[in-house]
Amino acid sequence: MKPRLLLITALLLGLSIVYACTELKRSKPILPLNEYERMIAGRLDADYVGTETCLAACHAHDAIKAAFDASTMGTQLRRESGLPLVDCESCHGPGSLAIKGITRELVEENSRKGIKTECNYETLIDIKNLPAIAKSLICLKCHTGNATFNLHEWNAGVHAVNDVSCSDCHDIHEGADLKVKPKDTAAMCLDCHQEITAYYRMPSHHPVTEGKVYCTDCHNPHGTSTEKLLRKASVKETCTRCHGEKEGPFLYEHADLTDDCLNCHMPHGSPNNNLLTLREPFLCLQCHQSHRINTATGEPKTTALKGFFFTRCTNCHSQIHGTDIPSPGGKGRFIQ
C-alpha cells in the first residue's frame, strides 16, 4: 500500500473513531415502541415525590427492605455507590397520587394501632399486569448498552417471543448485582420447563439437579443466534467446552455426524448410559449394516460369537468420536 493511501486510511479511521466517541453515549431506538412506552410512563397527572418519601414513611419496615438495601438497585439509590442513580419512581412511575392524603403522622398513628397504611397502588404503573415486552422495557430503558451488553439477541430470542420478561428471572429488589446464583438456576428454569425434570430423573443425566452443572453452562437465557439458546455457536462447541477430548478435528472423522452431538446423545438425560439416545448396538445399527451373522460355511454364529459382534460397539470402536490412527485394515474404523 502506498504511504499516501495509508495516511488517508489512518486519517479516516481516526476521524471515525473521534466521531464515534462523541456519539458514544447517544443510544436511541430507530423507531420508538409507542404503545408500550405509554404503558410504562405512568400517570401523566402525577408528580414525582422522590425515593426518600417512599422509603422514609412507609417502606422502611417492609420485609424486603434489608434485601433491597443489599441489592444493586437498592445501592443505586445512594450517590456514594458511584453507580448510575435510580429512583423508586424510575420503574414504578410518579407517586404523588399514590400517597395523596397520606402523611407521616397518619402512618405512625395507624402503625401504633396495628393498621398498615397502604398507598393507592392503582395510580402507579401496574407492573405485574403489563405485557411481558412492556415489563422488560422498564429494565431495557437503562440496560441497553449502558450497563448490560449481553442482550444483543434478546428481542427476537425465544424467551422474548414467548412473553418472558426480565422480572421472571431477576428479583429486582434482592441480590447482588441482580444476578441469579448459578446454583439457583435449575429450580428457576425447571419451574417453566417442567418436562425437562423427567430427564434428570433418568439413570444417565447431567448433574443439574445435584447442583454440579448449571443450566447456564450450556444455555444463555438472554438469547443467542443458535437454536435452544446455546451459549456457543453450535451444539458441538457447547459440549466440547467441557468434553474437549472429543472436539477434534481428527484425521478420521465420523462423517459429519459428530458435528452435532445430538445425533447420538440426549443432553439432559437418558435411560441409557452416556446419555445415548438408544442403546448399543441398535444405536449404530440404525445407520450401519451389521457384522456378518453367519459363519463362512453358512452356519448360524454361536451365541458367544454373536455376543462378540453384537454387544457394545464401542468395546472395539472405542474412538467413535474420531481418531488420528488408522485401523488395522488401513481405514478409519475408529478401532485404533
Binding site: K28, K141, L151, H152, N155, F250, L251
Partner: peptide, 27 residues
C-alpha cells in the same frame, strides 16, 4: 452488532470465525 434494544424495529447481526487445529495430526 445490534440496534437499540427498545425500539419498534430492532435488528442484530453476528459474524464469527473459528479456527481449530489438531496438534498431533495437523488437521
Amino acid at each position: 452488532a445490534h440496534s437499540s434494544y427498545t425500539g419498534r424495529i430492532t435488528a442484530s447481526a453476528s459474524f464469527g470465525s473459528i479456527r481449530q487445529s489438531n496438534q498431533d495430526s495437523s488437521v
